[in-house]
Design a protein around this nucleic acid. Structure first.
Lengths: 198, 198
DNA sequence: GCCAGTTACAGACAGACTGTTCATTAGCCA
DNA sequence: TGGCTAATGAACAGTCTGTCTGTAACTGGC
């Protein structure tokens, strides 16, 4: 008796409706009634499941993050040595599947709070990864790992957003990962075509 | 007769009140009445100047961007050759002066729209800069300049946000610029303490 | 300093949206 | 099938919005 089918149906429909509508009109423009109408659910039912539309959005985002974490877990363990790019690749694949949701989250809909959840989760994981890796390999970071994680995540998010916003996902995920790896290795100076000055 | 003093007073007060209140309670939580009350202005007066609170926020952000552009103009001309970091330094100084506003914009308040204005403005300028520089020095970018600009801006924004959110601005702007330059030069691999593999 | 023109003001207004409650109906699962 | 739980539609007060008054206060030019 894990969960009543009616409950599942309602929640799913409301979540899907939210995503559709945010994509069409933006989060703030939406009414609870808009959402319930699209989901074909009574307004009273909405309030039986969620406090308000922010709550719904937060849960949808949390589910997305949970799904991402689940997919990342096995991959992260493997890439403990260096920047293999495997976790990033897995995230890009996830983003391709859940493209609409990624879009609205990365656009900062909902006062940027879902995005913050996303960024903070990534930053925390990355910082921890950096710390552990430095210790394991006994190297001294040249830049505060906390800040470095923020930078790394900021970069990933920027690329991710650019990627999911393209009408056709013409550039394959593998290409994107390669570019990010090149950047991490050689720096932006190299990427822009210059040889680093002596 | 450029502008009536009363007009100026009202607009300024409303803008300042908005910034204060967003910092305290977040944008969506605010009421037009909250803002007018804090600004000590009649509610009707608000609507004489702005369509709604989004409009007010958008104008405040636009003013900020205009101010930034003004300060950046002379500096950008000088740094045409390479990554001197001067424009970034100037932006950091601007951010220190307008710290509260930078904070709320970078947090993505207002459905991320002001942030988008900010990011897009930066990205456009940066991409143009990259393009011009590559042409002037006759080098071939190794990565799509459009994407490179997004990455660069994403990185800057991440650092900027981290910086303005610190309670004390303990790390001087010059230090931050140095770190960003190091990253641009040598890449993140270097920054994390590793020597780049052959 | 006065005066015409503009702005600020308080209050009132309908309309929309919110979040809650309730009695009733429909669907589920064992 | 029967007991339980969720969904429904309708109604509710309360809040916020955006607009529109007539009146009072101020401003800048003369």
């Amino acid at each position: 008796m894990a969960e009543d089918r009616r409950t599942r149906r309602s929640r799913r429909a409301l979540g899907a409706a939210l995503v559709e509508l945010v994509l069409e009109r933006g989060f703030t423009a939406l009414t609870v009634e808009d959402i319930t109408e699209r989901a074909d659910v009574a307004r009273a039912t909405f309030y039986a499941h969620f406090r308000d539309k922010e709550d719904l959005f937060a849960r949808v985002t949390a589910d997305l993050l949970a799904g991402l974490a689940e997919r990342l877990a096995p991959v992260v363990a493997d890439s403990a040595i260096g920047f293999t790019g495997k976790p990033v690749l897995e995230m890009l694949r996830h983003a391709r599947e859940e493209r609409d949701l990624y879009r609205i989250v990365l656009r900062g809909e909902g006062d940027g709070k879902p995005l913050q959840m996303f960024v903070d989760a990534c930053a925390r994981a990355t910082a921890e990864e950096f710390r552990a890796r430095a210790e394991r390999n006994a190297v001294q970071p040249r830049i505060d790992p906390e800040l470095l994680a923020r930078v790394w995540v900021g970069e990933q998010i920027a690329v991710l957003r650019w990627w999911v916003e393209q009408e056709t996902l013409s550039l394959p995920a593998e290409e994107v990962v390669r570019m990010l790896l090149d950047l991490a290795m050689h720096g932006r100076y190299w990427a822009s075509g210059f040889e680093p000055p002596a």
